[in-house]
Amino acid sequence: MSESVIGVESFTTVRGLRLAWVDFRPPGDGEDGTPVVALHGHFGRARGFASLAGALAPGYRVIGLEQRGHGHSDRGDGDFTPDAYVADAAEFVRGLGVGPVVVLGHSMGGVIAFQLAAQHPELVRALVVEEGGAFNRQPEIPHPVLDVTGWPRRAATLHELRRGIEARGIPDASYFLESAVERPDGWGLLFDYDDMMASQRALVGDWWSGWLGSECPALLVHGLDSFVLPTAMAREMAQRRPGTVLRELPGCGHWAHDDDPEAFAAAVRDFLATL
Rank of each mutant, 00 (worst) to 15 (best):
E9A: 10
T12L: 13
V14G: 04
G16C: 02
G16I: 05
W21H: 15
D23K: 06
F24L: 13
F24Y: 15
R25Y: 00
R25K: 09
P26S: 14
D29R: 14
D29L: 11
E31T: 01
G33E: 05
T34V: 14
A38H: 04
L39W: 04
L39A: 04
G41M: 06
H42Q: 13
F43D: 00
F43P: 00
R45T: 12
R47W: 07
A50H: 10
S51N: 07
S51L: 09
L52G: 06
A55W: 12
R61V: 11
V62P: 05
V62W: 10
Q67L: 10
Q67D: 00
R68I: 09
H70R: 07
H72Q: 11
H72L: 12
D74K: 11
R75V: 06
D77R: 12
G78N: 11
T81W: 01
T81P: 00
P82W: 10
Y85I: 02
A87T: 08
D88I: 06
A89N: 03
E91Y: 00
R94W: 00
L96G: 08
G97D: 03
P100T: 11
V101H: 05
V102W: 00
L104A: 02
H106M: 09
S107A: 04
S107R: 02
S107I: 03
M108T: 04
M108S: 04
V111L: 07
I112R: 02
A113G: 03
A118M: 05
Q119F: 03
P121D: 07
L123R: 05
V124R: 01
A126G: 05
A126T: 01
V128L: 05
V129M: 01
E130W: 00
G132K: 03
A134F: 05
N136G: 03
R137M: 10
E140P: 04
P144Q: 10
L146W: 09
L146R: 15
D147Y: 11
P152R: 15
R153I: 05
R154A: 08
R154P: 00
A155L: 13
A156Q: 13
L161T: 09
R162L: 03
R163M: 09
R163W: 09
I165H: 05
E166S: 11
A167H: 06
R168T: 14
G169K: 12
Y175W: 13
V181P: 05
V181Q: 07
E182R: 15
G186H: 08
F191A: 05
M197S: 02
Q200W: 08
Q200L: 09
Q200I: 04
L203W: 02
G205N: 09
G205L: 07
G205W: 07
S209K: 12
G210S: 15
G213T: 12
S214E: 10
C216M: 15
G223R: 14
G223M: 13
G223P: 09
D225M: 09
F227P: 03
T231H: 08
A232I: 01
R235S: 02
E236T: 07
A238T: 10
Q239E: 15
P242S: 12
P242W: 09
G243R: 15
V245P: 00
R247Y: 04
L249I: 14
G251S: 05
H254P: 00
H257D: 08
D258E: 12
P261A: 14
P261W: 07
A265M: 09
A267N: 08
A267Y: 12
A267Q: 11
V268Y: 06
R269T: 03
R269P: 01
F271W: 05
F271Q: 13
L272F: 12
A273I: 01
L275M: 12
